[in-house]
Computed example of a mutant assay.
Amino acid sequence: MENIEENELQIIDWLNQHKTNVVSKGKPLVTLSYAQSLDGSLTVRRGMPVGLSGPQSQRLTHCLRANHDGILIGIGTVLSDDPQLTVRLVSGRNPQPIVLDSRLRIPLECQLLRRQQNKAWVACAKTAEENRQSSLLKQGVELIRLPRRGDRGLDLPALLEELWRRGIESVMVEGGAKVLTSFLTERLADVAVITIVPRWLGGVNVISRQRAMDHLPSLSNARYTVFGRDVVVFGVLEWMER
């Protein structure tokens, strides 16, 4: 466990250094963090969650959550996993959950809305059904109303500006595939911490092929650390000039 804790500390120290650099520019640090198989799959098929990470890399995920102000997922992850997005495996503060849900499909009974403290903020389209907006507001849910950007979905730069205004200086983006692809193709992510597990799935890839572009980033000064059976790669996102 001592080596695992040293590896966690190494990644957290590295993350905090980059957070200082990004925050000084007046924007939140955006970290992509997820687990994938050897063939780059997140799950076997959409709507069917698969537990990929081993116990050591799961603990790292909770450490990362505790070191971010916010944690962001898409509505698909809520509907399939009903996650808690807490730091149960380590001591620390739970991040503020943020759900991208343009049409407000989020169930009122999901775990992120049932809890009394740190209830999820829901980012939706300004044109989302008014009755649905009213129902959520009556339950004490905070809505972040955003414009749409054509086939790109919600205006993510506007979302990051609003999160910054609300005091969110770092955001951990966990998925799913559509959300991760959007933050990559729109060049909104700063760093990545990715867990690679030693198995093949042949399922849903991290990058949605319909949205993929020729100018995806690479990891600058990538580092690799072993957590139990898994390998974690982390680095700064670097784009080639278009």
Score class of each variant (00 low, 15 high):
residue 191 V to T: 12
residue 170 S to F: 11
residue 223 R to H: 11
residue 178 K to C: 09
residue 210 Q to E: 12
residue 216 L to D: 14
residue 205 N to I: 02
residue 205 N to V: 01
residue 171 V to P: 05
residue 222 A to E: 13
residue 190 D to P: 06
residue 190 D to F: 08
residue 210 Q to S: 10
residue 205 N to F: 07
residue 196 I to F: 09
residue 194 I to A: 04
residue 207 I to T: 08
residue 202 G to H: 13
residue 182 S to F: 02
residue 201 L to A: 07
residue 201 L to E: 04
residue 217 P to L: 07
residue 169 E to T: 05
residue 223 R to D: 04
residue 165 R to K: 08
residue 224 Y to M: 09
residue 166 R to K: 15
residue 182 S to T: 09
residue 213 M to R: 14
residue 193 V to Q: 03
residue 198 P to A: 03
residue 183 F to L: 04
residue 204 V to D: 14
residue 196 I to R: 15
residue 221 N to V: 03
residue 172 M to P: 03
residue 166 R to Y: 02
residue 208 S to W: 04
residue 212 A to M: 15
residue 196 I to K: 03
residue 223 R to G: 04
residue 224 Y to D: 00
residue 170 S to D: 05
residue 179 V to E: 06
residue 220 S to L: 13
residue 186 E to S: 11
residue 206 V to T: 06
residue 218 S to K: 14
residue 199 R to Y: 07
residue 185 T to F: 01
residue 223 R to E: 14
residue 196 I to T: 15
residue 181 T to P: 07
residue 190 D to S: 06
residue 165 R to N: 12
residue 187 R to Q: 09
residue 172 M to A: 07
residue 169 E to I: 00
residue 194 I to N: 08
residue 175 G to Q: 08
residue 206 V to G: 04
residue 218 S to R: 15
residue 203 G to M: 12
residue 171 V to K: 09
residue 197 V to W: 08
residue 182 S to I: 04
residue 209 R to C: 00
residue 192 A to C: 03
residue 184 L to N: 05
residue 193 V to P: 00
residue 183 F to K: 02
residue 220 S to P: 01
residue 204 V to P: 13
residue 169 E to C: 12
residue 217 P to F: 07
residue 195 T to N: 03
residue 192 A to M: 03
residue 223 R to Y: 11
residue 194 I to T: 09
residue 200 W to P: 06
residue 209 R to S: 11
residue 224 Y to F: 11
residue 186 E to M: 12
residue 220 S to E: 15
residue 191 V to L: 05
residue 182 S to L: 09
residue 178 K to F: 08
residue 178 K to N: 12
residue 165 R to I: 07
